[in-house]
């Protein structure tokens, strides 16, 4: 952390679809850098001191909730845990995450996309007996390694970086994307989920599913949680290819 103050220049896409006639423009803001400053801190300062209308989303500001993904100097990442000191030139260009409906400025509607994804992959344990479990009795046992492996795949925070970094998604509007594959891989691994491979095939066995992936692996490159997208997509593809 340097004690020397420098001036940071932000270039931010501004557009509010709620205002009739508004058009997208890039606006420039200058602020003094502080030690340990993150883009979260910087954007709040811009809002409070320079332009109260600027829209962006932060919740946890600790890199765990996935709200604040945006394009930072050309690359998707979580803004809250990106230190401004990472940019030696002091120039930071911020754009909203592509692939999602724009709410305004840097705020996008990941919620709608993720809910639809969850509904599409039926992101829950499928077990007819789950609701009849006797809660007084010992829980069903699980191999400790299996539990750890499931957690590894469940660390996704639905930030949307993988979707924005996906070339296939750009070409195919209905493409499920890595976030959906990761969710399916998580349930396919879980012994509590009784779905058969045939049933999983119905969800992802087409070009909008795992066979449409061009394997450019932007998802793998930009996942802020370093999830194993490459391995899981390959695994699902092989497993689905064996169906029927």
């Amino acid at each position: 952390m340097s004690d020397q103050e420098r001036t940071l220049t932000f270039h931010i896409l501004r557009y509010n679809p709620q205002i009739k006639g508004d058009t997208p423009t890039m606006k420039r803001y200058e602020i003094k850098e502080a030690p340990g400053m993150t883009i979260f801190i910087a954007l709040n300062e811009i809002r409070e001191k320079h332009d109260t209308s600027i829209q962006f989303d932060f919740i946890c500001r600790a890199g765990i909730c996935g709200s604040c993904a945006m394009i930072i100097n050309g690359q998707p990442d979580l803004a809250c845990r990106t230190l401004t000191s990472k940019f030696p030139e002091g120039e930071i260009k911020l754009l909203p995450l592509p692939g999602f409906e724009l709410i305004g400025d840097l705020s996008v509607n990941t919620g709608k996309f993720m809910r639809q994804m969850s509904e599409r992959v039926e992101s829950w344990i499928h077990d007819q007996n789950a609701e009849n479990v006797d809660l007084c009795k010992l829980e069903e046992r699980m191999d400790p390694d299996t539990a750890d492996e499931i957690y590894e795949l469940e660390r996704c925070v639905e930030c949307g970086c993988c979707v924005s970094a996906c070339a296939t998604k750009r070409m195919r509007e209905g493409f499920l994307s890595a976030v959906g594959f990761m969710r399916l891989a998580r349930y396919a691994l879980d012994p509590r989920d009784k779905r058969s491979d045939e049933e999983f095939y119905e969800i992802m066995g087409d070009d909008d599913g795992v066979f449409g992936c061009m394997t450019l692996l932007g998802c793998q490159d930009y996942c802020p949680k370093d999830l194993p997208h490459q391995t899981q997509i390959a695994y699902l593809r092989r497993r689905m290819a064996l169906v029927k």
Binding site: L135, E139, M142, P144, A147, I150, D193
Partner: peptide, 14 residues
């Protein structure tokens, strides 16, 4: 906690 187990939480195990 047992209900959440049935609903899919991958609790760390003994």
């Amino acid at each position: 906690i047992r209900q959440l187990t049935a609903w899919g939480v991958p609790w760390s195990r003994v």
